[in-house]
């Protein structure tokens, strides 16, 4: 075993050449290719990361927008519901008011009609009563009704107590006061003179009454002296009948009302 220095030198040269050749043909291309591939992979990963971030960002934005829309929809819905509620209330109130108005109108009308009916009934009843009384009185007592009325009024005037008489005569004596006698039927002159005489006897000789006809008095006499009034009338009998009729009509109206509602 011996060292061949020439061979050693040749081998060193060979080795250095091999290093150069492999550097040229192996290490540089391979490491460059690997580095490039790694760079590309890294680039793609970065790209993917970027895309992912973008996608997440977009998703977040969309989610926020969705929430915003939801909130807005909720608000719109709530507003609409509130408005609808308000509208409903208003309409209900309107309807109720209208209904109340109509009912009150109707009731007023009913009242009026009732009053009208009562008035007519009363008038007709009064007429009828007067007619019947007059015929009855004239048939059985041989006197006419006007005379009876006048007599009755005169008798009642006389029956007044002193205090009332004084008050009435004072009223008549007051300056500017007039004396008016109103009756439901037209009084004949005999009856008028009977009444005038009674006034002269009881209240004062200088009172000159003025005679008028008023249907409201019905069967009776009303004496107005200034501010004082003395009245006797068969109308008070009719009042009870009137009340009865009114009550009956009320009852009928109420049952009608409940039937309509």
């Amino acid at each position: 075993m011996q060292l061949d220095w020439l061979t050693i030198a040749a081998q060193i040269a060979n080795f250095l050449v091999l290093i150069w050749l492999l550097q040229r043909f192996l290490y540089t291309p391979i490491t460059r290719a690997m580095a490039k591939r790694e760079a590309r992979i890294e680039e793609r990963l970065a790209d993917a990361r970027k895309h992912r971030q973008e996608a997440e960002q977009e998703a977040r934005t969309l989610r926020e927008r969705q929430q915003e829309l939801d909130a807005r929809a909720e608000k719109v819905l709530a507003d609409a519901r509130r408005e609808a509620e308000a509208l409903k209330d208003r309409l209900e109130q309107d309807v109720r008011k209208e209904f109340d108005e109509k009912r009150s109108n109707w009731q007023e009308q009913l009242e009026e009609e009732k009053a009208e009916l009562v008035r007519q009934l009363r008038k007709r009843m009064a007429d009828q009563v007067v007619k019947v009384v007059r015929r009855t009185l004239s048939d059985f007592a041989d006197t006419d009704l006007a005379a009876q009325v006048a007599n009755e009024f005169a008798r009642r005037l006389e029956a007044l107590d002193a205090e009332n008489k004084t008050r009435l005569s004072d009223a008549a004596a007051r300056p500017g006061s007039t004396a008016v006698v109103e009756s439901g039927i037209d009084l004949p002159s005999a009856a008028r003179s009977r009444i005038t005489r009674a006034i002269h006897d009881n209240l004062g000789a200088d009172i000159e009454p003025d005679y008028r006809t008023d249907e409201d008095v019905v069967l009776g006499i009303r004496l107005t002296l200034g501010e004082e009034i003395v009245e006797w009338s068969a109308g008070s009998y009719l009042d009870k009948l009137d009340d009865l009729v009114r009550d009956t009509l009320d009852a009928a109206g109420r049952s009608d009302l409940t039937a309509t509602t």
Binding site: M1, L3, D4, T7, I8, A9, Q11, I12, N14, F15, L16
Partner: peptide, 14 residues
């Protein structure tokens, strides 16, 4: 070639 001392010596010298 590595079975030759010349080669291994050359590498060792390197």
């Amino acid at each position: 070639p590595t079975g030759s001392l010349s080669t291994t010596a050359a590498l060792a010298i390197c």
